[in-house]
Amino acid sequence: MQQFEIKRLIPMELFGYDVSFTNASLFMVLALAVIPLFYLIAMNRRALVPGRLQSTAELSYEFIANMVRDIVGEKGMKYFPWIFTIFMFILVLNLLGLLPYSFTVTSHIIVTFALAAMVWLIITAIGFMNHGVGFLKLFVPDGVPFWLLPIIVVIEVISYLIRPISHSVRLFANMMAGHAMLKVFAGFVVGLGLLGGWAPLVFLVGFTGLELVVAFLQAFIFTVLTCIYLNDAVNMHHH
């Protein structure tokens, strides 16, 4: 579990709060540097017929843009930069965390919870801004018998309030479980020695590939769920 340990690299304090530059901060700053740098290099030539890097950059753009357009519709396109930022931030932090000796920022519940809470707060604000008090109708589904309504409304409210928790725990648990698993099997390699250590090593290589998929998938899922919640707020779908 020491891979999840926070180490204070440069102790700092602001207004009595501890804001030290930790290894987590280091990787966040790294992501902040890597993402714009990648796009700067990839889009440098602005070629009409894109090369490999530029294709990748454009593919990521189109991927998220299509996702927003499919789920939320044209009205959601003004939130596209925000959703794109969420996706790239989580994706790059997940992938950076897969490098040996690196630190996985998204394996910390406080980080994922902060992201999910931000999503939840902003989307709730968007819902109230677009529909006013009418946004509360989200908790009253159509076509429910009136004697069921009290129960349904309570359930809907709870499921709405619990969204940031499930949203954040999913990402956090996936990243943490994956890394803990890698650690356990790496322990097997050492524990079984030269004779028996090869089997877990092979498994470890395969599992690292799976973790790459999971790193992408969880960033994707986080973004898709954000889009679905945003759709509720923008279009007031009655479900």
Binding site: I6, D18, V19, F21, A24, M28, L32, T85, M88, V111
Partner: peptide
């Protein structure tokens, strides 16, 4: 607190850079 502080700073900066320049 250090994680939250740095998360807020980096996320907002990343959002600004992406939405103003890159995208």
């Amino acid at each position: 607190s250090p994680q939250l502080a740095w998360l807020a700073v980096t996320f907002v900066l990343l959002y600004l850079v992406l939405s103003r320049v890159t995208l």
